[in-house]
Simulated assay, not measured.
Amino acid sequence: MMITVVVADDERLLRDALEAILGLERDIEVVAVAADGLEAVAQINRYCPDVAVLDLQMPGKDGIEVTEAVRESSAQTNCMILTSHARPGYLKHALESGARAFIPKSTSARTLAEIIRKVHAGQRYVDPELSAEAIAAGDSPLTSREAEVLALAVDGATVEDIASRAHLSVGTVRNYLSSAAIKLDAPNRHAAAERAYERGWI
């Protein structure tokens, strides 16, 4: 049985390489490629592939958002996510979105093909090293509001800017940032944002 696949990655070189490498497998056929998340959703809806190999970070929609869109459309496509940004929090989000596999881009071509076959057969696969890092990082201690304002602080925004963008008062933003910094044992909001970002919590 031929396993049909859609490949989505915003890096053309990698996208072309994946298409060529998978095309060498006798039981795998790449039926379409996509350069961003929106195109990925369109191609998946058009071809209804057995498996979608999705880059985690793409314009339009990232791999997790594409996976969520596929699940919401009740498509039978099994999604797997490739990443070079293996922060622990991403793994949890990916699995919650319905992804059947989460693997680094350093994975060998042979292993990638085997994982596609496993996913097609209804199995799950998570890279052992990524899984261990996710377990070590644990769950985020931040509330959704704390995570929201901390994410806005990543680029060095002022408290006033964060308040405006989050539609909150300056005092409320200060309280959320202070609470988040305490939970993350960080000396200030910038350090707290960096720590949360590294763990994939924002």
Results as ranks from 00 to 15, higher is better:
46 R>H: 13
47 Y>H: 15
47 Y>G: 00
48 C>A: 15
48 C>K: 15
50 D>C: 00
51 V>D: 13
51 V>R: 05
51 V>E: 11
52 A>F: 03
53 V>L: 14
54 L>E: 12
54 L>G: 13
55 D>M: 02
55 D>W: 01
56 L>C: 12
58 M>Y: 04
58 M>S: 07
59 P>N: 03
59 P>Q: 03
59 P>Y: 03
60 G>C: 08
60 G>E: 09
60 G>T: 02
61 K>S: 08
61 K>F: 13
62 D>W: 04
62 D>M: 04
62 D>F: 06
64 I>W: 10
64 I>T: 11
65 E>W: 02
65 E>F: 03
66 V>H: 10
66 V>K: 10
66 V>E: 12
68 E>G: 09
69 A>G: 04
69 A>D: 10
70 V>R: 01
71 R>C: 11
72 E>V: 05
73 S>H: 03
73 S>Y: 00
73 S>M: 05
74 S>H: 14
74 S>E: 14
75 A>V: 00
76 Q>Y: 02
77 T>C: 07
77 T>Q: 01
78 N>V: 01
80 M>A: 10
81 I>C: 12
82 L>E: 09
84 S>Q: 07
84 S>D: 07
85 H>K: 07
86 A>W: 05
87 R>C: 05
88 P>Y: 05
89 G>P: 06
89 G>R: 01
90 Y>A: 08
90 Y>T: 05
90 Y>K: 03
90 Y>E: 07
90 Y>D: 12
91 L>V: 03
91 L>R: 06
92 K>W: 09
92 K>N: 12
94 A>H: 06
94 A>M: 03
95 L>Y: 05
95 L>C: 06
95 L>T: 00
96 E>I: 05
97 S>R: 06
97 S>F: 01
98 G>F: 00
99 A>N: 09
99 A>Y: 03
100 R>M: 11
101 A>E: 09
102 F>N: 10
103 I>V: 15
105 K>W: 04
106 S>M: 04
107 T>Y: 09
107 T>M: 14
108 S>K: 06
108 S>M: 05
109 A>P: 13
109 A>H: 07
109 A>I: 03
110 R>C: 02
110 R>W: 02
110 R>D: 15
112 L>Q: 06
112 L>Y: 04
113 A>K: 08
113 A>D: 10
114 E>A: 13
114 E>K: 10
114 E>Q: 12
115 I>V: 15
115 I>A: 08
116 I>M: 09
118 K>Q: 14
119 V>P: 12
119 V>Q: 09
119 V>K: 11
121 A>I: 04
121 A>V: 04
121 A>D: 13
122 G>M: 02
123 Q>H: 14
123 Q>G: 15
124 R>I: 00
126 V>L: 06
